[in-house]
């Protein structure tokens, strides 16, 4: 399947792009992270500490063990600092 992957804040800066379309067989968010990390050092740098990251699937906050079946959009970002 293909999914839009979005990056925000320092995750975007480390990876060097705001979004990309990814062909993947990943069944969960964690699988997708493993696939991306294996690609290049910049992904490894961005995903080095998963506890420092948050994830949203189809714009809903979720966990790294969330399934990706049917997902259109996955976003990775640091903890939010609104307000």
């Amino acid at each position: 399947m293909s999914v839009d992957v979005l990056y925000f804040a320092w995750v975007r800066e480390r990876i060097g792009l705001p979004r990309e379309r990814v062909e993947t067989q990943a069944e969960t968010v964690a699988d997708l992270v493993a696939e991306l990390t294996a690609r290049e050092a910049r992904y490894e740098a961005a995903f080095a500490d998963p506890t420092a990251l948050r994830v949203a699937v189809d714009q809903q906050l979720t966990d790294f063990d969330a399934p990706l079946a049917g997902a259109r959009e996955v976003a990775f970002f640091p903890p939010m600092t609104g307000g």
């Binding site: 804040a9 949203a56 939010m80």
Partner: peptide, 26 residues
């Protein structure tokens, strides 16, 4: 509202000073 907007609304702040720039950490 304020407590939840701070940690659950998808905003990220970066401070830009004469010394450089840094993301505000949660």
């Amino acid at each position: 509202l304020m407590d939840y907007l701070k940690s659950r609304a998808p905003f990220w702040k970066k401070e830009v000073t004469s010394a450089g720039e840094a993301w505000v950490e949660a």
